[in-house]
């Protein structure tokens, strides 16, 4: 059971991102490099928030404090990536093969860096839990909730997707100098992260349902921001 559960949870959390990687990123070296660079920047943001959490030792027990600053740092680093990518855009046109798609459709850069952000954040929150899922013990026999691994993986998936959507919206907001969108993103990130504070009480339905709802909404918003409409969605479903 443990190994089966491990495989299932792993693919629940990392299956869709993996598919996104294979189909949209793996063919272009530049995108892979941007993905890894974004992952590195997420790591830096986590490093900064850990430092902050470590220095302010009286509040180490209150994770709310660490969480709020971590969200702020992450969004700040998203802004840093935006600055770097936009500044490097001229250089990027020279080093990529499909210049047209990567530069004309500037949402691709946002998407790629967002996915890098998300994958790293998802890996950091889930990978140790998954390693424990292999066995020999399992959750929910004597104590704990047997839904633990599944909800954990599902939340991770939501976060990976959310990071991707957030990046697309965030980059667009900075391009159009739309402060409302910016604030909305920071607030929704804060809201989603604070919702997971409820996981402590093991009422997983109270977190997973609203989070997936917000994830869907953000996805729709990102789709609209990237220039999608109902008609374009319909036309992409048509077999050509």
């Amino acid at each position: 059971m443990t190994v089966v559960e491990f495989v299932g949870c792993m693919f629940l959390a990392f299956g869709p991102p993996f598919a996104m990687f294979v189909f949209t990123i793996a063919h272009d070296p530049v995108r892979i490099i941007i993905l890894i660079a974004a992952a590195f920047f997420w790591l830096l943001s986590l490093l900064l928030s850990s430092f902050w959490w470590f220095i302010v030792f009286p509040l180490r027990k209150d994770l709310v404090f660490g969480l709020i600053f971590s969200v702020i740092f992450q969004e700040a680093f998203r802004g840093v990536i935006y600055k770097i990518l936009r500044r490097a855009q001229v250089g990027l046109t020279k080093i990529t093969d499909d210049t047209t798609t990567l530069i004309e459709n500037k949402h691709i850069l946002a998407y790629v860096s967002g996915l890098g952000f998300g994958i790293m954040s998802g890996a950091f929150s889930l990978i140790n839990v998954l390693a424990d899922a292999v066995g020999p013990g399992t959750m929910g026999i004597k104590s704990g909730n047997e839904m633990f691994f599944i909800t954990s993986s599902a939340t991770t998936l939501c976060f990976i997707l959310l990071h991707t959507f957030w990046s697309v919206i965030f980059f667009d907001a900075l391009d159009k100098k739309n402060n409302f969108q910016l604030i909305a993103i920071v607030l929704s990130h804060m809201l989603v992260s604070c919702l997971t504070l409820l996981n402590k009480y093991q009422v997983y339905s109270a977190t997973i349902v609203p989070i997936s709802f917000i994830c869907g909404l953000t996805g729709l918003f990102a789709f609209k921001v990237a220039g999608g409409s109902y008609n374009s969605f319909k036309s992409c479903l048509v077999f050509r």
């Binding site: 490093l47 430092f51 994770l63 969200v71 954040s121 929150s125 140790n128 839990v129 992260s193």
Partner: peptide
């Protein structure tokens, strides 16, 4: 750098987050 920093500072933080299943 990342090994020592992660081991000493980041891991405690992410472990305590993961203990309470808080996602950032």
């Amino acid at each position: 750098i990342f090994y020592f920093v992660t081991k000493e500072i980041v891991s405690p933080f992410s472990d305590s987050l993961s203990n309470e299943q808080v996602f950032v």
